[in-house]
Simulated assay, not measured.
Amino acid sequence: MAEKYTAEIVPLNAEKIGTAPHGAATFTIDGAQMKIHIDMFDTPANVQHWEHFHGFPDGKPAEIATAAQDANGDGFVDLPETEPVSGTTMVPFDAEPAKMHVPNDSYPVADAEGHYAYDKLVDLKELQTAFKAAFGSDDLQLDKRVIYIHGVPDTLKLPATVQGTVMNYDAHVTLPIAVGKIIKA
Rank of each mutant, 00 (worst) to 15 (best):
K144G: 01
P11F: 09
A185L: 10
K4G: 00
H150I: 02
L158H: 10
T89K: 03
T26H: 01
H150Y: 02
K157F: 01
K144P: 01
K16R: 15
V85Y: 08
I177H: 12
D78M: 07
L12R: 12
P57K: 14
D138K: 11
I38P: 09
E3T: 03
A20V: 00
T26L: 08
M90N: 02
T82C: 14
L156E: 03
V122E: 07
T161R: 09
R145F: 04
A2K: 13
I17K: 07
M167D: 13
I36Q: 02
F135G: 03
I38A: 02
K120W: 01
W50R: 09
T19C: 15
V91E: 06
F93K: 03
D42T: 05
T174P: 08
K157E: 15
H22Q: 06
I183F: 00
D143Q: 14
I149Y: 03
F56M: 10
F56P: 07
D39Q: 12
I182H: 09
G55M: 08
K35R: 13
V152E: 07
Y148H: 12
N46Q: 13
A2S: 15
N168Q: 13
I38N: 04
V102R: 08
P21D: 08
I17L: 06
I36C: 12
Q33S: 07
D39P: 00
G18D: 05
L124K: 10
G164P: 10
H49W: 04
V146Y: 10
N13V: 07
M100I: 13
I182K: 06
L156P: 05
H52Q: 10
E113K: 15
A62W: 04
F56D: 11
P57V: 02
Y118T: 05
A98C: 01
H101S: 11
Q33H: 13
T66I: 08
W50S: 02
A185N: 15
E113P: 00
V146F: 01
P44N: 08
A95Q: 11
